[in-house]
Design a protein around this nucleic acid. Structure first.
Lengths: 245, 245
DNA sequence: AAGTGGTCTAGACCACCAT
DNA sequence: TGGTGGTCTAGACCACTTA
């Protein structure tokens, strides 16, 4: 690790190198990284410095440590989706992974909001996915998802229909895109005709509208999602923290 | 640090001791802790171990480090409130501390939901505060706050009216209660008559309802707050992170 | 210049997991 | 038993703040 930039801590440089390797695909999701001692030797830093870099990546949900086993590249499981991205729980507080039904899949051209969120040109080619999410058999949430065609070449509705897990698992396994973070903006709206019909409520009923932008490494946006949630029997919860303490 | 519990890391014990001192009021909010080297000597641990304990408390927003100056007990400023607790921003994304007007202050007996949230007996004595929050002159949010009388002895509407900063600053300075964390549940509702009048919308208009429980040290709940927000021109945003990276 | 937190080292030993 | 991450030590030196 000779010749680092001035003023930048060594462990930040190491973190940068680890992230570069992850972005380059040197270690696939779910696989173990070399042992910390090995990585420390490779980067020619002390073990403590290496660990500090890994600490950061673990905190950002990019790596997962398991004592006695190793350090792994994080994968997208249902559990992870539920804790990190899906914040809707039933009134009792029971978290449950929803049942997802594909309603529509088509190509289109990016509207202003989509283009801005995905940082692509306005009118650029996108995929649009429309899903109906149900919990305990009752429809709760309509998701409209927008993806840049360029990032998901050859995506088909068959992939969406046959996918066993979460969409983010599909992104990861089929397109080597790992979602690591999301930002959401929420507001209350009145149900439009379409949402009212799908969710089984009266038009104009209050619904929770969620705009989510999902990012992969380096704060690169890859998905825009507009969710409309019937909060008659469900809440959006912050604080689903299996972290801290 | 001889005689620690088996299986508990030393830095956790140190963290426990630091929190005990904070709860006991050994260091007042805003004041500096002894230097890390001094604390390490006092607890008879290595500096690295002491730092790891402090790291945790910094991450939990309980302590604040300032290089070259010291480590301080976190205080409640408007900035902190805005980033950690107040998640409403205008559509452009501009965060702005709202103007608060006290509408009502009275004593009452805890309803079921309030009692459960505050972990007090049903029907127990509480204070109820009703505030109208405005941004850029326009009313945006009605807050109904419930506090256990026992935790805030002698609270008066004069204190609320003359308070220069945030409510959490008042809790901290006048009642030695430091809010360190909150949990929120959100849903969309139709405006009732009262909210409609205060926010200047039609009854039944969709509003965002937020239930917040605020906790002090040791996950001890001290405030229940029901907010109703007009999201016509504002959003609730997650991800107001001045942390990480 | 003195004092603070921030980084970095080079180990030792412990707890846990797989075999 | 051997390999992994987790904890802990006892320093040295750097960067920043204050006086």
């Amino acid at each position: 690790m000779a010749g680092s930039a001035p003023g930048v801590p060594l462990y930040r440089e190491v973190k940068r190198l680890l992230m570069d390797a992850l972005i380059a695909g040197d270690w696939r999701p779910g696989t173990a990284l070399p042992a910390e001692r090995v990585l420390a030797d490779r980067f020619e830093v002390a073990i403590g410095t290496l660990r500090k870099a890994v600490d950061d990546l673990v905190q950002e949900n990019i790596l997962v440590r398991q004592q006695g086993r190793g350090t792994f590249v994080a994968t997208h499981s249902r559990e992870r989706y539920q804790f990190q991205f899906f914040h809707v729980v039933d009134r009792g507080g029971h978290a449950e992974y929803p049942h997802v039904r594909l309603l529509d899949f088509r190509k289109g051209r990016a509207e202003d909001e989509e283009a801005a969120a995905l940082r692509i040109a306005r009118g650029g080619p996108v995929f649009r996915i429309k899903n109906l999410l149900a919990m305990r058999g009752a429809p709760v949430d309509v998701d409209r998802i927008t993806l840049a065609q360029q990032r998901f070449p050859g995506l088909t509705d068959r992939q969406l229909r046959e996918r066993p897990g979460t969409l983010y698992q599909l992104y990861q396994t089929a397109f080597a895109i790992t979602v690591v973070r999301s930002a959401e903006r929420l507001r209350a709206v009145g149900a439009d005709e379409d949402a009212a019909r799908l969710l089984g409520v009266d038009p104009g009923s209050p619904l929770l509208e969620i705009r989510r932008v999902a990012f992969t490494y380096a704060d690169d946006p890859v998905e825009f999602r507009l969710s409309v949630v019937n909060t008659a029997d469900h809440d959006y919860v912050t604080d689903l923290r299996p972290d801290r303490r």
